[in-house]
Design a protein around this nucleic acid. Sequence first.
DNA 1: CTTCCTCCTGCAAACAGTTGCAGCTACAAT
DNA 2: ATTGTAGCTGCAACTGTTTGCAGGAGGAAG
Lengths: 159, 159
Amino acid sequence: MSCERATAETLKQSGQRLTPQRLMILSAIRHAGGHMSAAQIMEQVKESYAYIDVSTVYRTLGVLKRMHLVSETDMGLGEYRYEWVERMRHHHLICRDCDNVSLLDDSFLTGLAADILDDHGFRADIDHFAIFGLCEECQRSADTSGGKANGKAKGKEGA
Amino acid sequence: MSCERATAETLKQSGQRLTPQRLMILSAIRHAGGHMSAAQIMEQVKESYAYIDVSTVYRTLGVLKRMHLVSETDMGLGEYRYEWVERMRHHHLICRDCDNVSLLDDSFLTGLAADILDDHGFRADIDHFAIFGLCEECQRSADTSGGKANGKAKGKEGA
DNA sequence: CTTCCTCCTGCAAACAGTTGCAGCTACAAT
DNA sequence: ATTGTAGCTGCAACTGTTTGCAGGAGGAAG
């Protein structure tokens, strides 16, 4: 758990306490190789401490989220996904028909964040976006099967 | 209800049915002057039909969402907000400290959607974004109180 | 080491949203 | 007008997340 020392310091400095439960939750997220659901975090922590409560997990995630140590993303799965933010920044394109998830490089969003900062003075949190839409293949299927049914949607979404 | 005729046509052409419940839900959303929660829609519909069920409201919203007639947005209030999309397209900047909500013109996001379409062939649904971050004033307060500034983001989207 | 204050925990109940099911209905075809 | 059927409805049960509360523990100060 020595690798959590910096995090522990960050927590303490903002008036938060370092409890065994929090350490276990922290450790579970850090050592996972990617996104996790709250249930997966629970499961992992339960291996060392069976009495952990869901509300503790969510409350801890709330704290870590507020401190921007962990990102929370709705990937359309009916549950949030949590990830340690220190790993490389990336985003996701999620097809609403076939549910395929692909990666989107952060460079696509840096421009947006810069524009918003310039024009509105607003510093956007863009760590982990999930953007829904239609992948290339599903666009083709929609065009052939739907006829001109959704003529309106055929028009441009963003362009 | 004559103003719903085009919508009715759209629904029918995609194999959906036009039921009284759907008409009432449709009407409630169209005649509201902005975002509504599912509960508010329920309440409104109940004035003319007391037996409407939550699941019917959500299922109908799901259909309308999928057809891009209505947008669904997580504005950080613990419940989704729904809005008729034919009104001018717009997005929101939401400050995570002071909860202030400001408008963001659609032009900021058209470029992003175009870039994604060009490079990934993916047609992003960007009907109604809520972008979280820090407003100008709260950035200043954070800077003076010695905050470290990093971001976490939540991507949520209306289909 | 003790005291004290604040923050944290587990529990239970509440809340927003989803799902499986059996029966009903819109609506196209006849 | 009648029929057939895909799709819709209300109900109830369920999932994921949040909240109020009373007791418990971290950790700074003495």
